[in-house]
Nucleic acid binder design. Structure first.
Lengths: 344, 344
DNA sequence: GGTGATCGTCGAACCGGTTCGGATAGTTCG
DNA sequence: CGAACTATCCGAACCGGTTCGACGATCACC
């Protein structure tokens, strides 16, 4: 049931059917109706693959996310959802990059075999060879995240430096003097993940500015690791009164560790960090945190990509977001305990 | 840079290049090397769209999930991840169905325009017209979930009836006599979502068997609704000592409501339900719950679909999973309070 | 009534692969 | 040395659309 079949039954040529469908050339009202009747009757729908081949565009965008670990974190999945919904608005489908062990394969698959018109990349690293490749090949792509040298690129990023600093200032304003940072897993930090690096930078600098005593930890992306990490924190320095987490997957474990150690949140221990709304709202007490506006970022990334696809010569654009800290219930003024002076 | 270009530079015909790539006909070692050199030199990769058109298969499967509400729940997103990873194993890409307002549009887009070879459907309803359409059209599809009459279909499902019943029995064994059910939102129940219906059935029947006093509630898919729902529960019957939740997104709110009401979990209130591992591990105390093995289900769905695609005449197969309840820390024997006899 | 513009439609080429039948050259055998 | 056979490769058709140039019919106009 192809366009030739429709043409035959309507007694016209294939091109006439095509023009009635696309409207790129005038067709008389009579033949239009005749053709439309046949189409409705047979329930004909043009083959997307053939159309893509002829047009040179697939109307599909690729969403590339190398598997950080074995499982997906909530944040990654939020991006997937928002990108998909935003793409639908512009009549694009979203193809998920198969996240096989070797990232090159899926990458080549999407780009090299021209399965997609453009790509959105997640989990950006400070030095990201994927982006280098794409830039070199002039392949339309937009990054969710930004490299060490983002100038001249297409991206939508979160100012992790400023957000982590804001968390530190928030805690310092509340009187906390000894603060821990719970970062993403050490493999990700080593691999150069931008959120881990910029978050660490912002935390460290702001803490230095405020004269805080800090310790930084890397922590696996799951609740059990969070629990272990918190035990290590309290073991290393029992006088610590607050923490900033960049790791939302560990959040539940951190809370559980605090409860197990007999520390009440926020009464005698404050917790904050950079955590998506959905997760921050779910824990008890609700987390005071800088939101990760995943929905907005996904939407903006799609808008940038569509603009780039529609106007291949458009100058590069980007969005750097710095959402405010949402004050909820997990931070409180530090209580001067006996432990602090004796331990410092 | 197409196959003709390669052929020209290698001094052979297009078909010879094609056969060297596919290996479907013997090619002499000399020409093979000659062609391969040109391919490596130019970094040629065959165009997937053209190949799909010629082959009649796109090597892509569609993942269809109508938007339950405005946002994605964790469970939906877990399925997406697991399906994608499993599909990659079989060399399939995954196309996310654009979840526009009218579900028919995205549906037609994927199936009618033959953008995908097959589909995996999520969020199944007891009477699901999408599945009816697909079955009628003999389109290869596998459902994650099962309809009211699943016989003869391709699906992988969770026995929500048995799981909810198991939760009830677990609570009854612990001595609880007054138990609440927190279900999915009322719109989903009305729409006939199978998990909501079967879970409710299993809960109700098991409670009747054990002679429990129960109340059932529908609850929005977010923490705030969970909080409100819990307040309603305690208001309606302060003597309730346990709840079963089918709604994992509300879990955090339920916990927060209990804390606010001064009920210690599990000491004077037990919580259990059907909740994915990842969420159950994240709350404090960790939730005793029937796991939703999203990873396994996604993998099984892909395996069934691939089998169906490879063997169009294979008899229908399915998997009905009934994972055990993971005993964690959120349930405990009921304490006979004074409230119970007075209020009953 | 002939000329030129306009409208509607057709045929053919093309997108970039795959696949089938046949042609050519080289080999084997009687 | 010719016939039969095999190993290789080529050319053309095809997948299902889109698009360009051209052609015939209709119409306005002088």
């Amino acid at each position: 049931m192809n366009i030739g079949e429709i043409a035959k039954r309507a007694g016209v040529s294939r091109s006439t059917v095509s023009y009635t469908l696309s409207g790129r050339r005038p067709v008389s009202e009579d033949t239009r109706q005749k053709i439309q009747r046949v189409i409705d009757e047979l329930g004909y729908q043009p083959n997307a693959t053939a159309r893509a081949l002829a047009n040179g565009r697939t109307n599909t965008i690729g969403l590339v996310f190398p598997p950080a670990g074995n499982h997906y974190t909530g944040m990654q999945l939020d991006f997937i959802g928002s990108v998909t919904e935003a793409a639908a608005v512009y009549d694009y489908d979203v193809l998920l990059s198969p996240s096989g062990a070797d990232r090159d394969r899926s990458f080549q698959r999407l780009m090299g075999e021209r399965r997609v018109d453009g790509a959105i990349l997640m989990e950006i690293r400070l030095r990201d060879d994927r982006l280098d490749h794409l830039t070199a090949a002039d392949f339309p792509a937009v990054a969710i995240g930004r490299t060490a040298h983002p100038a001249g690129g297409w991206w939508v990023g979160l100012d992790h430096t400023a957000l982590a600093a804001a968390c530190v200032h928030h805690l310092a304003d509340l009187g906390h003097r000894r603060v821990a940072l719970v970062n993403r897993p050490v493999q990700l930090l080593r691999a150069g993940y931008e959120s881990a690096h910029r978050g660490l930078d912002g935390f460290t600098k702001a803490a230095a500015d405020r004269g805080l005593t800090v310790r930084t930890y890397c922590c696996g992306d799951d609740a059990a690791s969070g629990l272990a990490c918190l035990e290590r924190i309290l073991h290393d320095d029992p006088a610590i009164t607050a923490l900033v987490t960049l790791n939302e997957a560990a959040l539940g474990g951190l809370y559980r560790g605090l409860a197990r150690a007999g520390r009440q949140v926020p009464h005698d221990f404050s917790v904050t960090g950079i955590v998506a709304n959905r997760w921050a709202e779910t824990v008890t007490p609700r987390l005071t945190a800088a939101d990760v506006p995943a929905e907005q970022m996904g939407r903006l990334a799609v808008e940038l990509l569509v603009e780039r696809l529609d106007h291949p010569d458009a100058p590069a654009r980007h969005h750097l977001l710095e959402p405010p800290i949402s004050l909820r219930a997990s931070t409180a003024p530090a209580v001067r305990t006996a432990a602090d002076p004796t331990n410092s």
